[in-house]
Simulated assay, not measured.
Amino acid sequence: MSLPYTGGCQCGQIRYEIRAEPLTLYVCHCQECQKQSSSAFGMSLTVPRDAFVITQGQPKCWTRKADSGREVKNWFCGDCGTRLFHERTYSPNTINVKPGTLDDTTWLRPVGNFWTRNAQPWVVISDQMLNYDGQPDDVHLLWQKWIQQGS
Rank of each mutant, 00 (worst) to 15 (best):
S2Q: 15
L141T: 15
I54S: 04
N74M: 14
D50L: 09
E32T: 09
A66F: 00
Q34M: 10
T116S: 12
Q34P: 15
S68G: 07
D79T: 15
T82R: 00
T6P: 04
N113R: 02
T55Q: 09
Q56I: 05
H86Y: 15
C77Y: 02
W146R: 01
R83I: 05
Y90S: 14
Q149D: 14
V111D: 11
S39R: 02
P4W: 06
L141R: 12
Q148C: 07
W75T: 00
N113A: 14
T116W: 00
C30N: 11
H86T: 06
S91H: 14
Q13S: 13
I147T: 14
C28I: 00
S44H: 12
W75R: 01
K65N: 08
T89N: 13
W115V: 05
W143S: 09
Q36V: 09
I18F: 00
K35N: 12
C9D: 03
M129E: 15
T101N: 03
T94F: 07
F76H: 08
C77E: 03
Q120G: 14
H29E: 02
S37F: 07
A66D: 00
D127Y: 05
C80N: 01
I18T: 08
S126E: 10
K145H: 11
T106V: 07
S68Q: 05
Y5P: 10
H29P: 08
T101M: 04
I18R: 00
T89F: 14
Q120H: 15
R49G: 00
E87N: 05
G150E: 06
M43F: 07
A66C: 03
C77K: 00
W62P: 02
C11M: 11
C9P: 00
A66Y: 01
N113E: 10
R15C: 05
N118Y: 13
H86L: 12
W122I: 12
L23A: 02
P4H: 04
E32R: 09
Q128A: 15
F85V: 00
S91F: 13
I14W: 06
G81C: 04
G57S: 07
W107F: 14
L84Y: 00
M1N: 13
S38I: 13
I14Q: 07
A66T: 11
D67E: 10
K73H: 12
G7D: 02
S151F: 12
P110Q: 06
E17Q: 12
K60F: 07
F114A: 14
A66G: 10
L130V: 15
R109C: 14
T94G: 02
C11F: 10
R109P: 13
F85H: 05
K98E: 04
Y5L: 15
K60P: 04
T63M: 14
W62Q: 09
P48S: 06
D133M: 04
C61R: 15
A20K: 01
Q148K: 11
L102S: 07
R117Q: 08
A51L: 10
R15K: 10
S44Q: 11
L108H: 03
V47Y: 11
E21C: 01
